[in-house]
Design a protein around this nucleic acid. Structure first.
Lengths: 361, 361
DNA sequence: ATGATACATTGAACCGGTTCAAATGCGAAA
DNA sequence: TTTCGCATTTGAACCGGTTCAATGTATCAT
């Protein structure tokens, strides 16, 4: 008994007495084939149990994979990504455009050393990199193989990128507080690695030289600096603390609340806190609450980003909200549209809620 | 000037003065190649800008795609999936195992007619189908091409499947109420399509013949029937309403609250409501609240599934919780492990919280 | 009847690798 | 010196399709 091998297109073709090319057309371009031949080929296919062209073959022959990949930022594996409110919302945006194009969405898994391999081997038509951290991993795909988009940075005119107007958002936040009458501020920003202790920069130091932070964190600080300058305040006079993380679930994560405490201790004159890190909002609010500081009566707080977990916090946080899903859509669109490199900058919005008011007397 | 084409393996090979086979080995099985040759090939690759073997070629040549696909259930596109608490948790489980294996996770987009195409074209080593609805779409992949796992059904010994013990869970829910002393029940279960109005089955009708519902919904009802039978109550005496949806955000979605109202109106003697549909819990609670019925004093409620949105509901819902992420893990493991078809049944647990108590006098 | 036009079909090249049996080279053992 | 065994290297087949120029073949206007 002959071993039953899976039928391939050429088997079908010869069984139907046509050429491979015709058989191929029956499946991918039926209008090119006479109805009768079509029928004959389809019958042969059915008889041989041929379920349509194998995508593997199609792909090799210059085809598209019909899928795009998302590579979550360095510290976020795909398991965590699904539980991360920002990432799921971002991915929903990407998925939205994928669905428009009937394309699949491929997530590259994030195990330490495996990520580069995952990127090299991904069978996709393009990449969305969650952060520039993956810059070195891009190299293989950059070599003209596959287009890609970088999130949250501007890597110059030659590279696709999507980010939000971090600087402008920070300006709005600062402006809001200034307009309310605030003149004494404290700033919370991002420390990149969890093993570093919080860092406090007193008013006598130069703050522009931060230790941690991604590109967008620096942009935000620059925005605050610009806006404060309009009322004669130098960013160098403003106390700043850099803290890591602060999970949306656990405010103390990575020493976040410790850092916030450091700021509050060292900046008693501040009437408003500006939080520039997206995951630090909870740490700020919770440390403030722990100290029984009344917000916004004793202290105003402006955040950055809008994690849903904070939706029920009382008072609701006045914060800069960014169009997370729209970022995903924009990135995916760039990939599907092709064309010359684009740099998309999306606007952010100040959502004035309950955590800001005029400064205490 | 010659047009610069992307270098391929054979170019590298000839540039380095070796055979294609050797060049291939340098990248995929270095230990087979003498160090010096390795160096030569790598140099040639560098000079030509060859960034490693193209996964397309590797794939065709009998390789694995190194990714598995998840096909969300019929009515859930991938955009929605990312915003759907159950799906994200499930996907997190799948992702967990993918990361263990350094494999990618591919989501098949769910546009109506495109889904079959998405499945046919997906470059993956296996499929996880969110529901049996996709049974017909499976056909192409079933033809020996790619292994797959079905969720939430038992499709027999020849097919991989992962589900939870719906029947047992329902029995636990019913038992809990029985033990509290309840003898008069109302049941809310699932109507499949949103365009159908809620259906009420009065105590005189035969309830086993439901209109909607997936396989697991029927299992759950059967479980309740079994347990009630132990205290001499026939399921045929119990009022049942079938309602669609009830979104986790909008309790009225798809007429869900209308259906619940129907049940409450027609079953005034019921001291306990058993909700068998995962997304209907909110509809039940909200209609009950609207009527100012005090839970659990006037009415006990047991739910099925544990959407995080209900975490803050007062009183917290006594409900059957299923190991959602573990379902994802189990399904993914089956795909990676290979071997003969497996049918996995995971246990569920009754979480006794605040919505159940002894029946009112 | 003739040439032009349109359409259907085909043969062959190509996509970019992997794999394996056979060939080669080389030092050690006889 | 010859032979054997082992480690490398190679040629050729193969993975399963798509594509395109060339070849027919039927249709239509002249």
């Amino acid at each position: 008994m002959v071993k039953h091998m899976r039928a391939k297109l050429s088997d079908v073709a010869s069984a139907a007495g046509v050429s491979k090319a015709t058989a191929s057309n029956v499946f991918s371009a039926p209008q090119k084939v006479r109805p009768e031949l079509q029928r004959r080929v389809k019958e042969a296919a059915l008889a041989l149990g041929f379920a349509g062209p194998d995508p593997k073959g199609r792909l090799l022959s210059g085809g598209r994979a019909n899928a795009i990949a998302v590579v979550p930022p360095g510290d976020i594996g795909i398991t965590i990504a699904f539980r991360h409110p920002y990432m799921t919302e971002f991915l929903a945006g990407v998925a939205d455009i994928c669905e428009e194009h009937g394309a699949g969405l491929h997530l590259v898994s994030g195990i330490e050393g495996q990520k580069a391999k995952g990127i090299r081997n991904a069978l996709v038509d393009g990449f969305i990199f969650g952060s520039i951290e993956e810059a070195d991993l891009i190299e293989p795909s950059r070599r003209g193989r596959v287009p890609f988009v970088l999130m949250d940075v501007d890597a110059g005119p030659g590279v696709n990128s999507v980010r939000v107007d971090d600087r402008g958002g920070a300006r709005q936040a600062a402006r809001h507080l200034i307009d309310l009458g605030h003149r004494h501020f404290g700033i919370v920003t991002v420390l990149r690695h969890s093993h570093q202790p919080p860092v406090f920069h007193g008013p006598s130091e130069v703050h522009h030289r931060l230790i941690g932070g991604y590109h967008n964190d620096r942009e935000r600080l620059a925005g605050v600096a610009e806006e404060l300058a309009t009322v004669g305040i130098s960013i160098n006079e403003v106390p700043i603390v850099e803290v890591f993380g602060g999970s949306v679930h656990d405010p103390t994560f990575g020493g976040a609340t410790v850092g916030v405490a450091m700021l509050l201790d060292n900046a008693p004159e501040a009437t408003a806190i500006i939080t520039l890190g997206d995951t630090q909002n909870l740490a700020v609010l919770s440390e403030i609450r722990r100290r029984n500081i009344r917000v916004p009566r004793d202290l105003s707080v402006v955040g950055f980003d809008d994690p849903p977990q904070l939706a029920l916090f009382e008072p609701p946080l006045t914060t800069i909200v960014q169009p997370v899903a729209e970022k995903g859509r924009a990135a995916a669109r760039i990939l599907f549209e092709g064309g010359p490199p684009k740099q998309v900058v999306l606007p952010v919005e100040l959502a004035v809620r309950g955590s800001t008011a005029v400064p205490r007397k």
